[in-house]
Nucleic acid binder design. Structure first.
Lengths: 190, 190
DNA sequence: ACGTTGTAACTATCTAGTTAGTTACCGGAG
DNA sequence: CTCCGGTAACTAACTAGATAGTTACAACGT
């Protein structure tokens, strides 16, 4: 590999920035700390990303795409989708933190993580599952989707009720998965 | 009223600090801005609250107590409790934001808003409602409570799925209340 | 030779927290 | 009633360090 590699530099910056923004938020993150952690000169960071906000947006977009692609949506089996989302949120808390910072410090209302296309596809799948009797037709698809996601993130690191600790015994996780599955199953039964 | 009133000064500081912390978080809030907004000298702020974190903790405790007392818990009617919590979250988004900042920047795992006593009382009420057949005994009370709260906050300003806008038409709120009520009702049915 | 990649040092501004001193209030002595 | 002294409430100005962003210049590779 070459001594000079703009692409690799960019990746190192994004990795360091992801960690720092997830830990401290936009206002709390430090540009010098990120550059030092990445082993990159600060001026180089600015030439790549413009400013601190530009760096945050790049970090957020990258990670939001990753998480959406990582957990495929199954409208005809919402409990399973919820459980997989629970696992993803526990396994990668920094993504949840990043999204929460973005919500608080950047975009105020509306959708956040998913783009229009990803969201639309899920909504259509829910409508179809309502027609075929997997999901109650008593709610609008967008409310079904929002509720399932909220339920899956009940114990996430940004939860206002009760956040799971990283070192919780597997039995706790298993108990929550069962509770979540039961609750989702009942909540949207036709 | 006296020209000098330490208690009134304290209240003005807490009010200004609540607004600033809710808007910008701990790292983003500015001590000078808070003092100026309250019309209080900065040194006075420090004599009252020690430092920035001390001020935040005072602000958070005050508001957390207020919200817990404002929405009484009814284990035998969880859908109604959820709807009242939804309304509270929409009406006072700054409380939700404050709690979310606290979660991200201060306490990492475990409970957040409620103290031991308030939480215990709710958990016992849920256990009782499980015995009397209002709530499924298939889940532990703590999971029931966490899930209900998470569901009620599905559209709150800190939601990762879809945040309600302040100016949403009443029809949207009504639609969400019905969806929430239906979902909660189904999720914990025995 | 020349654009891309990289660096060290710098600046202007901001920020939490402090200090040394001033003013209103209040209870008691005269 | 009024003067006095102590104390609590309050203030202007300051400090030391941090912070985002810039500049002028050097080295690499092709």
């Amino acid at each position: 590999m070459p001594v000079r590699d703009a692409e690799a530099t960019r990746r190192r910056l994004l990795a360091a920035a992801t960690a720092d923004f997830a830990a401290h938020g936009i206002a709390g993150a430090r540009v010098d700390r990120i550059a030092a952690e990445a082993g990159v000169n600060k001026a180089l960071l600015y030439s790549h990303f413009g400013d601190k906000l530009g760096l945050f947006d790049a970090v957020f977009r990258m990670n939001a795409d990753a998480v959406v692609e990582a957990t495929p949506f199954t409208a005809e089996d919402l409990p399973d989708y919820a459980v997989r989302l629970y696992d993803a949120a526990i396994a990668r808390p920094e993504l949840i933190r990043l999204a929460t910072w973005a919500r608080l410090e950047r975009v105020t209302p509306g959708g956040l993580v998913m783009d229009e296309a990803a969201s639309d596809a899920k909504l259509r799948a829910i409508a179809e599952a309502q027609r075929t009797g997997f999901i109650t037709p008593a709610m609008e698809p967008r409310d079904v989707l929002a509720l399932v996601i909220a339920m899956a993130l009940t114990w996430s690191c940004a939860s206002l009720s009760y956040a799971a600790a990283p070192g919780d015994p597997e039995a706790d996780h298993e108990r929550r998965r069962r509770a979540l599955s039961t609750a989702v199953s009942g909540a949207f039964r036709p």
